[in-house]
Design a protein around this nucleic acid. Sequence first.
DNA 1: CATCTTGGATAGTGGAACTATCTCACTAGC
DNA 2: GCTAGTGAGATAGTTCCACTATCCAAGATG
Lengths: 208, 208
Amino acid sequence: MRLAELSAESGVAVATLKYYLREGLLHPGRTLSRTSADYDESHVDRVRLVRALSEVGGLSLATIEQVLEVITEPGTDRLHVLEAAQRTLVRAGARTPDGADGGSTQRVRDWIERHGWEIDPMDPFIDDLARAWEACDHAALGLDEDRMDRYAEHVEGIATVDVSTVPEDPEAAVRHVVLGTLLVDPVLVALRRLAQQHVSRRAERVGP
Amino acid sequence: MRLAELSAESGVAVATLKYYLREGLLHPGRTLSRTSADYDESHVDRVRLVRALSEVGGLSLATIEQVLEVITEPGTDRLHVLEAAQRTLVRAGARTPDGADGGSTQRVRDWIERHGWEIDPMDPFIDDLARAWEACDHAALGLDEDRMDRYAEHVEGIATVDVSTVPEDPEAAVRHVVLGTLLVDPVLVALRRLAQQHVSRRAERVGP
DNA sequence: CATCTTGGATAGTGGAACTATCTCACTAGC
DNA sequence: GCTAGTGAGATAGTTCCACTATCCAAGATG
């Protein structure tokens, strides 16, 4: 198919597709002549994935490029699947260069240990959690360790579902973990809003 | 305190604080003379909140302005606390103007009904969920209704914790719900990453 | 053959979030 | 009192990002 057809198929403007080609987000089509190239289903899929990561996942195009690099690159050996995926996710989530201060990071490490989770103490998501927790503190939301325990219990259930659905094939696994993490996040966020509605409505009916 | 002190206290550049003042994100200090104004703790808190919503929550300054408007505005009556909060959150989460197509929205409505949640069929988060779910479909992540049920079960637990921690006072409640939703999202996202690590490591030790 | 597309290259646009400069009143030190 | 320096406010400029519009030459189309 030609670029204009790819545009029609994916709903993305031709000029934008050219831009994606330039930026390396979209692999070039098979050049037929100086004025025509052939694109196939893989291009449609790719464009849709880029749009999904951008619009639903909220990632920047630069980040998307890195994500694509990892999930399309073969040669990840079986043992390091999750490791590779996590490394990608770390870079995908990188927001500000400045980390949380040492104190709040230590609080997270302590909490993890007390909670009984087996996590590498240098895991970069510890820093993310520390920053997010700290922000809740400043806003006086009363997010204490007890409430964190209760959240963690439910999140562990979610993670169990996540892990149980990872395919055997190592290459598919990296793709699944990376995309499953990035794209399911918004699903869970929306579910949380809906569940809050349901729960509070139920409480209202039962309560006063 | 003077603007320079507020800057030192909050770690935000003076020029940026001036910009926030111009944009109405920061309430003006008490003007002492043509060349000095007095800022207090409320300003420090406000700046930290803006930074938290921006850096941790990933909101745009325009959105933050709307959020601040709602949580600082008094006069929300007791009954409409959650409604007001949800309306704010809808606007806070608004990304792209185009919604999901009718089919995938209907699937979400059907799923909600089968799942037994009591949700307004016109709730705007249904559209968010539809879009996010659709994106997972395109990526072939195998997110079927069964897996959605399992996610929902755990998310309901999270929402129960959320609702149980909302304060009685209606004004405090709006603030708590809005900020608690926006700022705790990143906490849960980070927790999910860590929990995946923990769960998969545990599975590895038990399994092959 | 004349016209219309197409792919590729280059430059321009608009919005967001700052940042730098300028002016002028005020204040502190002498 | 006088001068040097600082702070507040206003204005204009910068940087980055994600596109978008224009141009051109080669090739397809009628």
